[in-house]
């Protein structure tokens, strides 16, 4: 049984079909990359896995550790170990980053029947993660993502991921907005989390991220479906030839 199994998923928004029969499986211990042109449905897929409201699932199922989570509340999915690193992390003024992260950890612990985290343990964790990700202390004291630069937002996502220790991580364009050094730092943060129990879905447009977070499998998503699945060399092929070959007849122009 794979960690994540998506079968024939159809999802639409405002009656506009976006995912049109998507099938995909991510095994524990593996990194799966998803590449695809703008508007092909990559962020939609990640949102639907994380349980964002507003999408209508018209067909198909999403299974996580064998359980059908298709209609589950987003917080339940998070508590079960699914983490979405947002393509565009939301700025939330007035909510302090550290306070928020502590509430999130405690909410997840509570769901697992555990007590609240010791404050010293929490601070140690967050400080260590911040150091590894070269996030200054001052940023931890600020409001959640508010006024963070594009690159800071992405590193803050990896920091949250590090502290929350999820099982399935969906990285939606982790590399967008990151400079070369920040990209390396963020990728190292992700690689530190790789383990036999954990699975990753790494959405990107560029090989440069896959040089740093080396995938086991590469999928090509075009027009709401996985058009091709292969080994890492598929990404290189794509880099050379573009998406032209993968556009299905009825969708291309």
């Amino acid at each position: 049984m794979a960690l994540l199994e998506i079968e024939n998923l159809h999802a639409s928004i405002d009656d506009k079909p976006i995912l049109k029969g998507l099938t995909l499986a991510v095994e524990a211990g593996k990194v799966h990359a998803i590449m695809g042109p703008n508007g092909s449905g990559k962020s939609t897929l990640s949102a639907v896995i994380a349980g964002r409201p507003g999408y209508r699932i018209t067909e198909g199922t999403i299974r996580y550790r064998g359980e059908d989570i298709t209609g589950m509340d987003p917080e339940k999915r998070a508590q079960a170990g699914i983490f979405l690193s947002f393509q565009h992390p939301v700025e939330i003024p007035g909510v302090a980053f550290t306070t928020f992260l502590k509430s999130a950890i405690n909410a997840q612990r509570k769901a697992r029947g555990e007590g609240e985290i010791e404050i010293t343990e929490f601070l140690k964790k967050i400080k260590q993660a911040a150091r590894d990700l070269e996030i200054p202390d001052a940023m931890l004291k600020r409001a959640l993502n508010t006024g963070f630069s594009g690159g800071e937002k992405k590193r803050a996502e990896v920091l949250q991921m590090t502290v929350l220790e999820p099982t399935l991580m969906i990285l939606d364009e982790l590399d967008s907005g990151l400079d070369i050094d920040a990209l390396r730092i963020a990728a190292e943060g992700v690689n530190r989390l790789r383990s036999p129990e954990r699975g990753f879905l790494c959405i990107t447009h560029y090989q440069r991220l896959l040089d740093l977070i080396v995938p086991d499998v590469v999928h090509i998503l075009v027009d709401g479906r996985i058009q091709r699945t292969g080994d890492p060399s598929l990404a290189l092929e794509l880099e050379e030839r573009g998406y032209g070959d993968f556009i299905p007849a009825q969708a291309g122009q």
Binding site: A50, G51, R52, P53, G54, D73, P74, E75, R77, A78, Q79, F83, L84, F86, P89, V90, I92, V95, F100, L101, S103, A104, I105, A107, Q108, A111, Q160, L164
Partner: peptide
């Protein structure tokens, strides 16, 4: 709604 979903996606009810 975006902020709500963001917070929920981290496990907050």
């Amino acid at each position: 709604e975006d902020a709500l979903f963001y917070l929920q996606s981290r496990g907050l009810t």
